[in-house]
Each structure stands twice: as structure tokens, then as C-alpha cells.
Amino acid sequence: MQGLEVRGLSKRFGGLVVSENIDFDLPPGARKALIGPNGAGKSTFANLVTGILSPSGGTIRFDGQDVAGLNEAQRVKRGIAKTFQITTLFPRLTVRENLRLPVLEREGQGTRMFRRASGNAEIEAEVTALIDQFDLGPLADRPVLDLAYGQQRLVEMALSLALKPRLLILDEPAAGVPSSETHLIIEAIERLPDDLAVLVIEHDMDLVFRVARSIVVLVQGRILTEGTPEEIANNAQVRELYLGGAHG
């Protein structure tokens, strides 16, 4: 099968069960959202899929191949990428340098020593295209730490997209972004390539309902339910969870 296929995935931290028997599919071109209260295990699930954490049980297959034995860097090479819930960039490098790095590494040029990092016209063209795609043109030569937070979140997405992944997990892309700027994040997600499988983890329901065609609800490490946005919006359990919970 093409895309991501997770079966019976579980993860324990000592006695704490954070993922429990999760079955999850994400075919090419999918736009899924993973929602749930704080501490439900959403980031943990993302970290299991990308190889930052190793599971306590279950299988993860991508394009029909078991990726259990691969570390994070090797899974990136297979096409699995994720953004960080807590912005993780190269702060003192410019936007352009931030984006040049993943493209160079993807092209296997990262260990070249005797040519200029900016000397490959094709790579530079691609970096420029990414900068334009995320409307970062005027900021291209500024260190990332000079950027406003919302713009840093865009660089966060651009950095992962620069790897040309086939599966992209966005871990709370709008976290901490003022609501007046979330539309920038939403537009950026809408502009992602059609054949890319996208999983968005997010608390902002506006964003979730704008971009997701299907929503998975995770509660205490278990999948509570999965459905279309309408089904989830009308689901009594979910409504109770969100009306009674910390997020609305």
C-alpha cells in the first residue's frame, strides 16, 4: 500500500501509557487532522512515526515497507518529515541559509568542502522558489531570530517542505501565532503539493476545519473516533470533550 500504515502502535514512558493500540492510515494526498486535549499523545505519535521515539509495540509501514529499524535521518530520506511544535530553526542563520541546508542535504551535497554552499544554481533556484511560496522574499537575508513569530512558523514549514517529503506532519503549525496571522499558516498549508500526505496536529479548530478532510480524535493515547469534519463537529463525545476541556 502507498503511504503510511500504522498498526497496533503503542508507547509507554515507564508506567505511563501515551499511545495505546493505534491504527492509522495516511494515503498520498490525504489531508488529515489529529486533535485531542493537551497530553493526549499527539506529539508522541508524530515522534513515533518520524523515528525520534521508538515504539513499545506495533508496526509502522511506509509505502509498504517496515520503517521500524530506521532512525530519524533515514526516515527523512524515505520521505517522512515533520515540523516542530516548538519552533526549531537555525536562529542565527538567514532565512535563505536555513532553507539552503535541507535542500543541500536532500541532494546529498552536505559534505562537500571545496565549493560554495551558494554556488549551485539549481539549488539556489529551488531555495528562492520556497522563499516565494511562503512569501518570505523581503526577509530572505535576515537572520531567522529577527523574524516575527508567525514568520518563523512559516520558515518552520518551509524547512520541512524543502526535503520534498511525501508525508508531512505539522505539529501545531499555528501554536503561539496571533489569531490575526493564522490565515497565513492556513494559506501556506493550502498551497502544499496535492500529492503530499499531510497530517496536521492542531488545537485551533478554525484551522482544522479549513484544511482537514478527515479528523482523528486522540484521547489519553487512544483513538476515540475518526470522521469527516461534519461528523466530528456533531459527535457528542467530542463536543463534550471540547466544551468541558481546556480548549474550545
Binding site: 527523512v76 515533520k82 516542530f84 537555525f90 542535504e105 536532500r106
Partner: peptide
């Protein structure tokens, strides 16, 4: 550049496949 990247954020370097 990749060394400067590692200096800035080893976690992100792993995440871009290094």
C-alpha cells in the same frame, strides 16, 4: 554551513536527514 547548522540546532539537523 552544515556545521553551523549543527551548532545552531542539532535536533533540526537530524530532522533534515543528517
Amino acid at each position: 554551513l552544515s556545521l553551523r547548522g549543527i551548532h545552531e540546532s542539532p535536533a533540526r539537523m537530524e530532522a533534515i536527514g543528517v
